[in-house]
Amino acid sequence: MAKDPVCGMEIDEAEARAQTGQTMHGASEVDPQQGTRSFHNGQWYYFCGLDCRTKFLATPAVYLEQ
């Protein structure tokens, strides 16, 4: 299990990677109800939802320092 760097919730990595469709621009997307992920500085980070991912992407250093 991965840990959300923003809220600390444990995330099932397999569920977060499960493909559910495409965005309106054709990019693959995951079901945000099952968690989501983002690649940053050579590592995947997993999040409980889009809110935590958005906070992390805005200021990753704040969450990585913790």
Rank of each mutant, 00 (worst) to 15 (best):
M1I: 04
M1K: 05
A2G: 01
A2Y: 05
A2K: 09
A2T: 04
K3C: 10
K3Q: 04
K3M: 07
K3W: 02
D4P: 02
D4R: 00
D4M: 06
P5D: 07
P5V: 01
V6R: 06
V6G: 04
C7K: 03
C7P: 05
G8C: 04
M9H: 00
M9L: 08
E10Q: 05
E10L: 03
E10K: 05
I11F: 14
D12A: 10
E13V: 12
E13P: 13
E13G: 07
A14W: 08
A14F: 08
E15T: 04
A16G: 10
A16K: 05
R17A: 12
R17I: 13
A18N: 07
A18F: 09
A18L: 09
Q19T: 06
T20A: 06
G21H: 14
G21M: 02
G21F: 12
Q22G: 11
Q22F: 15
Q22C: 10
Q22M: 11
Q22Y: 15
T23N: 13
T23Q: 05
T23M: 02
H25D: 10
H25V: 12
G26D: 10
G26I: 10
A27Y: 15
A27H: 15
A27N: 15
A27L: 12
S28D: 13
E29H: 15
E29F: 15
V30R: 15
D31K: 08
D31S: 05
D31C: 11
D31E: 01
P32V: 01
P32K: 04
P32N: 03
Q33P: 05
Q33N: 14
Q33C: 09
Q33G: 12
Q33L: 08
Q34I: 00
Q34Y: 11
G35R: 11
T36D: 09
T36N: 11
T36W: 03
T36E: 08
T36M: 09
R37W: 13
R37T: 04
F39G: 02
F39A: 03
F39Y: 02
H40T: 02
H40R: 07
N41D: 14
N41T: 13
N41Q: 14
N41Y: 09
G42F: 10
G42S: 07
Q43M: 05
Q43C: 04
Q43A: 01
Q43V: 13
W44D: 03
Y45M: 03
Y45A: 07
Y46Q: 01
Y46N: 03
Y46G: 02
Y46V: 09
Y46W: 06
Y46A: 06
F47E: 00
F47C: 04
C48H: 08
C48M: 00
C48K: 00
C48Q: 02
G49P: 10
G49N: 12
L50M: 12
L50K: 13
L50P: 09
L50D: 14
D51H: 12
D51R: 14
C52T: 04
C52K: 07
R53M: 01
R53L: 05
R53V: 04
T54K: 12
T54R: 11
T54G: 03
T54V: 05
F56H: 00
F56Y: 01
L57H: 14
A58G: 08
A58I: 08
T59N: 15
T59G: 09
T59I: 10
P60I: 00
A61T: 14
A61R: 14
V62A: 10
V62G: 01
Y63A: 06
Y63I: 02
Y63D: 00
Y63L: 01
E65W: 09
Q66I: 13
Q66M: 09
